[in-house]
């Protein structure tokens, strides 16, 4: 049975494997060239902390930093792409092709039990795909950690880094796979199922990152210049330096405009802030402190694992419904 599942999905799994190897090679290349650059520019001292006075003035370091930004971006898209592609090319055809070609009738009329058939196939697709996600996440972490602040090692809570950590990679990949499997069973056609998986996976990941993740916990509201916020460089700032009332609530536009006309001085200056307080307002930032990173990783992973579980249950239900 395992042989059958492998034989059926080996093309998609090999393609994913090649993709993983290519992206791993890209990250290894980026890492070694960047380390060589760090060496050549003698900026080793900036890697642990780039905010030292010496480093802030080091143009060579910041030039290298500017070069590293597109590399980080490329790898982000390659990793995000992997998760979606796993769902599109391994998940959606797993059962969509069977239903499209009617071969599920062939498989299900053998002695093998439907449940076993379903889960062996699912496992054959999921286990290697998740392994790929873990490898990509770990290699990226290894690359980033070796370059410290240059690669934004402290900024893993930021969108663009948060999603491509090993744990979230596994969560997203398992979700995309389950979505693909469910879509395949739902629409019974490979190409439409792939399209639906693509749109669905990207859509859900975007919506969760944009609208849900900020609310996993209420953000800490504080004043901008509070030392804690300045020193917590691992924090995730949602809104920085905005006008709120003294209780931390939002202020309507008309009232804000009136205050802005009344208060003078540069934004954030002591005089300006004093004027705001006179009007019953203050400047505040909405922040998730850096120590919440693992909590948020856990919640996000749990959320996507839960969604994946629901989708697999839906897939099992669809399979049973196809048989009644």
């Amino acid at each position: 049975m395992i042989w059958l599942a492998w034989r059926q999905h080996r093309a998609a799994l090999c393609a994913l494997g090649v993709y993983v190897l290519a992206v791993v090679a890209l990250m290894v290349y980026y890492r070694s060239t960047m380390l060589a650059e760090v060496d050549a520019r003698h900026v080793w001292n900036c890697l642990p902390d780039e905010r030292t006075q010496a480093c802030l003035r080091n143009r060579s370091y910041w030039q290298l930093w500017a070069i590293s930004v597109p590399a980080a971006r490329n790898v982000f898209w390659a990793l995000a792409g992997y998760m979606v592609l796993a769902g599109v090319f391994a998940g959606a055809p797993a059962f969509g092709r069977e239903l499209e070609q009617g071969t599920h009738l062939l498989a299900l009329s053998q002695s093998v039990r439907p449940r076993r058939w379903f889960f062996v196939k699912l496992g054959m697709v999921a286990v290697p795909a998740l392994l790929g996600a873990v490898v990509l996440g770990l290699v990226r972490a290894w690359w980033v950690s070796s370059l410290g602040d240059l690669m934004g090692a402290r900024e893993r809570f930021q969108p663009g880094q948060f999603e491509v950590q090993p744990l979230t990679m596994v969560g997203y990949t398992v979700f995309a796979l389950a979505l693909g499997v469910a879509c395949g069973l739902l629409v019974r056609r490979v190409v439409p199922a792939m399209a639906l998986t693509l749109v669905g996976a990207v859509g859900v990941m975007y919506v969760v990152g944009r609208f849900l993740r900020p609310h996993y916990r209420p953000p800490v509201v504080g004043q901008f210049d509070r030392a804690e916020f300045q020193t917590d460089r691992a924090r995730w700032s949602l809104r920085q330096d905005v006008i709120v009332d003294l209780a931390g609530g939002d202020v309507d536009g008309a009232r804000r405009d009136a205050v802005l006309r009344a208060c003078d001085g540069p934004w954030g200056s002591r005089a300006f802030e004093g004027c705001l307080v006179d009007h019953g307002l203050r400047l505040a930032s909405f922040v998730h402190p850096g120590h919440r990173f693992w909590l948020f990783q856990g919640i996000e992973f749990g959320l996507f694992a839960l969604l994946a579980g629901v989708l697999v249950a839906v897939a099992v239900w669809l399979l049973r419904r196809r048989m009644s």
């Binding site: 034989r7 059926q8 070609q101 009617g102 071969t103 009738l105 062939l106 009329s109 002695s111």
Partner: peptide, 13 residues
Amino acid sequence: SVGFVAQDKPLYR
């Protein structure tokens, strides 16, 4: 035991 060949004789292409 029951053997079944579905319409269109599905096989793995």
